[in-house]
């Protein structure tokens, strides 16, 4: 599987600030092969989330280029990038980002329904069963614990069979025990489905479970580690 599914060339992000221009990311070069798992680590403010946003096409770089599943993202307009996201990308967020107004099942059904999937309900039910929430389908996010909410979010992220999964501090809001379980689940599903995983974290133990790691400091890649 030596196909690059995600690559970044000379990627920079510059934002204006009171003291002149602020370079958040500086000349990032990166290649991710299909089926790989990559951890982006670094301290707060090192530019991890910014990089994730650029790689996933949520934001556009100031310089450089991102190619995701064969599409040069900065050549697409926002709606075309949205289509790429819908077809190729899944997200897991630190703050879960479930819709309060929908129950667990409906949250998982949402991406399937948006695509007009014929048996969205069955598929979502099955996925929720897979993440261990088969008995809590009709619970609203407020009725679920943080760990349970994140499981719903993971089920939702995998629902539309994405090729690439972006996870932004998926355990950041959870205690270490629950975080452990969520990680297990994320990696298991990732393996089962052959998804490429891009994980932003500052937890070295979590990062260590990925095949590759890159460390960011002040917007630059300062270290890379191949799997042991």
């Amino acid at each position: 599987m030596n196909v690059s599914i995600l690559s970044a060339r000379n990627l920079s992000k510059v934002v204006p600030s009171a003291e002149g221009e602020l370079r958040i990311l500086d000349s990032i070069e990166l290649d991710v092969m299909a089926g790989d798992s990559l951890a982006i680590i670094g301290s707060s403010g090192s530019g991890k989330s910014t990089l994730l946003g650029l790689l996933a096409g949520l934001d556009l770089p100031s310089e450089g280029s991102v190619e995701l599943a064969g599409q040069i993202l900065e050549r697409l307009d926002e709606d075309q990038r949205a289509r790429v996201r819908a077809e190729q990308v899944g997200f897991v967020f630190q703050s879960f980002q479930l819709l309060d107004s929908l129950n667990a099942l409906e949250n998982v059904m949402l991406p399937l329904e948006l695509e007009g999937h014929a048996n969205a309900r069955e598929r979502a039910t099955e996925l929720l069963g897979r993440v261990g929430l088969g008995e809590r389908l009709s619970h609203s996010p407020r009725q679920l614990s943080g760990g349970e909410q994140q499981r719903v979010a993971i089920a939702r992220a995998f629902a539309a069979d994405p090729k690439i999964m972006f996870a932004d501090e998926p355990t950041g809001n959870l205690d270490s025990h629950t975080g452990e379980h969520i990680c297990d689940l994320l990696f298991e599903l990732n393996r089962e489905r052959g998804t490429t995983l891009i994980l932003v974290t500052h937890d070295p133990r979590l990062a260590a479970r990925c095949q590759r790691q890159i460390r960011l400091d002040a917007g630059r890649i300062v270290g890379a580690a191949e799997p042991a």
């Binding site: 709606d79 949205a82 289509r83 790429v84 819908a86 077809e87 980002q97 819709l99 948006l114």
Partner: peptide, 15 residues
Amino acid sequence: YDASALLRCLGLSRR
């Protein structure tokens, strides 16, 4: 705002 951003993440176009 949050829900709308999420929907966009899930691939809904602006329109």
